[in-house]
């Protein structure tokens, strides 16, 4: 049977975060914690594969004890097992340190429940917003990475062949690979299901597996948490609102306003930047 690991993260819904206009700081109060929504699309795809071919789906997350809730949700949707990797020593991890711990977790899940055929990550997180953890995990596991996947066209557990559609700026790429692979999921991939009633009951009762640093034999403590994170946030600030001197064009007629606007635009460096300047413009 296929074994699929889904990497998820519990994040504050940054869309709901506001800036306090007086102090210029983030207002985190009342901001709900959600499962990073790209990750839910990864989970849904894993569950679809489970529905079609049969698979064992293990969900893993590195996070604080409260992330247990996120795992329970995943189990209520249909995941078989949820693993919370939690330790104070992991705090302050950047993408390099995170991918180290997540890769170790996938490896340990492999030892516990069998070889892993597929790993799903989200395209990116709402809080970290980098999309770097997926490639990092693939790299450490030494498996192929298929990023920004919007469709799994074909999966054959026997030949171990997979064909996916990767979304790019200017088109779609069809890529074929052999399992095991790591996929990063876009929202276009699918519509995540709602938990069924029995699922909800199972999720509520479910107690996630918890692993700490002590559960990983060969963990290198210099590679985890703040110490293992080469990037440092040196400064954060709220950018000034766009400082402009708005010119309100108050012309008699619509045509005059339209031409006024174009005169204004042509007097700036826009024509040059946009390639509007033609030799027809006489100099002097």
């Amino acid at each position: 049977m296929l074994h699929i690991v889904v990497c998820i993260k519990q994040v504050p819904d940054s869309r709901e975060i506001r800036i306090d206009p007086k102090t210029n700081t983030l207002i985190r109060q009342g901001v709900p914690a959600i499962v990073n929504y790209f990750d839910l699309h990864g989970l849904e795809e894993a569950l679809r594969i489970k529905d079609e071919h049969g698979a064992r789906v293990t969900v893993v997350t590195m996070g604080p004890p409260s992330a247990e809730k996120a795992l329970k949700l995943c189990v209520s949707m249909g995941a078989d097992e949820g693993v919370l990797v939690s330790d104070r020593a992991f705090a302050g991890a950047d993408t390099l340190a995170t991918s180290y711990v997540v890769a170790l977790t996938v490896q340990k899940a492999e030892q516990e429940w069998g070889p892993v055929d597929l790993v799903f990550c989200g395209k990116q997180t709402l809080d970290g917003d980098t999309g770097q953890v997926g490639p990092g995990v693939a790299c450490r596991l030494d498996i192929e990475q298929l990023t920004y996947v919007e469709k799994v066209e074909h999966l054959d557990p026997k030949t171990r062949e997979i064909i996916v559609h990767r979304h790019l700026e200017d088109g779609v790429e069809r890529v074929k690979a052999k399992l095991p692979v790591l996929i990063t999921a876009l929202t276009e991939l699918n519509e995540p299901r709602r938990a069924s009633l029995p699922g909800v009951i199972r999720g509520t009762r479910y107690q996630p597996v918890v692993w700490t640093t002590n559960d990983f034999e060969d963990i290198d403590r210099s590679k985890i948490g703040l110490r293992g994170s080469p990037t440092i946030v040196s400064k954060t600030w709220v950018p000034d609102p766009r400082a402009v001197n708005t010119k309100v064009l108050e012309d008699e007629s619509t045509d005059a306003a339209a031409n006024h606007l174009l005169d204004e635009l042509l007097a700036t460096d826009l024509p040059q930047k946009l390639g509007w300047v033609k030799e027809a413009v006489s100099v002097g």
Partner: peptide, 22 residues
């Protein structure tokens, strides 16, 4: 870009080094 992020994430992990996105 999609490709740039795909590549940068792999390289930075291998080297290893810090990588700032976007």
């Amino acid at each position: 870009t999609y490709t740039g992020r795909d590549l940068a994430g792999a390289i930075a992990t291998h080297l290893p080094t810090g990588l700032t996105a976007d």
